[in-house]
Nucleic acid binder design. Structure first.
Lengths: 204, 204
DNA sequence: CTTGACACATACCAACCGGTATGTATGATG
DNA sequence: CATCATACATACCGGTTGGTATGTGTCAAG
């Protein structure tokens, strides 16, 4: 009846995923230590290898079940149905710039970190990460297209190319700011990206 | 007199640096294997630890003595004395887009790779990498300032912020294209960056 | 001719890695 | 009550890691 706190497999799996996410976010996938993850969770290898066949599967699960929902909530949802994507994205950037948590500036975007590390050396990772990345670009692209329909966005721009660039530039800003470890540089970079977005608007 | 081919210490050191650069570029610093580097050079640990005190020193030397000159030749020099930086950068981007070597698209920018991996977890690396990055931004910034003086560039833009953004966006383009492994996406992204540069020009 | 610093090569080490084999408590099922 | 799969824990393994200690050949100086 009263289920023991330590015998809920779904909860255990979730704890492993979250600890793995944190460790991977800090150290990267290859340098992430399973021992460390287990130390963080208080679990053992028995639990880990019961829920995941190997380290790689754990990493891929982190992408699908931790990073994807996170990204969807933060970046996809706000753009999903907007008819004024430029305005939506600018308020999104403003929100990011207003964050006081140095999380992003110190550790960077989890998706980008993994892409940079794993895409060149592991095809499975590359496919999964690229799929997620492409979804992101697609969301932005559809936003732009809707913006073009509603008259907010100029019609002589390539929606796909522009969307790819916007996401790339944002990841670039985050990455460089991570190196600088300066919230101020981060905000300035986002401001310039916002300036670029402004140039996409239809002139009235 | 005739110096033996294998007893020129400077040459040995250089071989180690280049092999280390290649290995680090592929695998990242943490996952770079000293054994692999030695196998690539045909040398042994005796040679390595004669020239470098430890792995970290080797990595930092790679940054200073391989990546820095490479970056300086490719990105700094073309902008050093130009009075029309926008034009110079656009021809630079054009040259990058025209490259058929998939080197950049498959492995990415060595500087950015190291920054993403090492900056959050090692302060020494972060300082060295950030120094190099800041020099890059500075070169672009000075170019913009000179462009403002010569009338090519609008005067109501923040040179420092803009320079930071340009470098960030470029690194972002490279990074995302590395993930996509598509030369076409890479070229499209550079084209959008070029479009941004165009908006910096003084209206005639 | 000897000495000694330099430029490596060889052999070895403890620590850690991901992964496996086995043991065990629990809870549902027949 | 017996059975059996689930959900872990424990103990262990071979391989690899960065790093070290020692050996050796060369060459220049004294």
């Amino acid at each position: 009846m009263n289920p023991m706190p330590s015998k809920q497999p779904d909860l255990t799996r979730q704890k492993l995923l979250e600890a793995a996410f944190a460790e991977i976010h800090r150290q990267g996938f290859q340098s992430a230590s399973l021992t460390q993850i287990l130390a963080d969770t208080g679990l053992t290898k028995g639990a880990l290898y019961h829920h995941f066949p190997d380290k790689k599967a754990l990493g891929l699960a982190v992408v699908e079940e931790v990073i994807r929902p996170m990204l969807a909530a933060m970046m996809f949802e706000p753009l999903r149905e907007t008819r004024r994507p430029i305005a939506a994205m600018q308020s999104l950037l403003k929100a990011k710039a207003a964050e006081t948590d140095p999380w992003v500036v110190t550790l960077g975007c989890p998706l980008n970190n993994l892409m940079q590390e794993m895409s060149p050396i592991d095809e499975t990772f590359r496919r999964v990460l690229n799929q997620l990345f492409k979804e992101w670009v697609e969301v932005v692209k559809h936003g732009i297209v809707r913006g073009q329909a509603s008259g907010e966005v100029r019609k002589n721009i390539d929606a796909a190319e522009t969307a790819f660039f916007i996401v790339s530039a944002l990841e670039g800003c985050i990455g460089m700011s991570k190196n600088t470890q300066s919230m101020e540089a981060y905000r300035g970079c986002l401001k310039q990206l916002s300036r670029f977005l402004e140039t996409l608007k239809e002139k009235k």
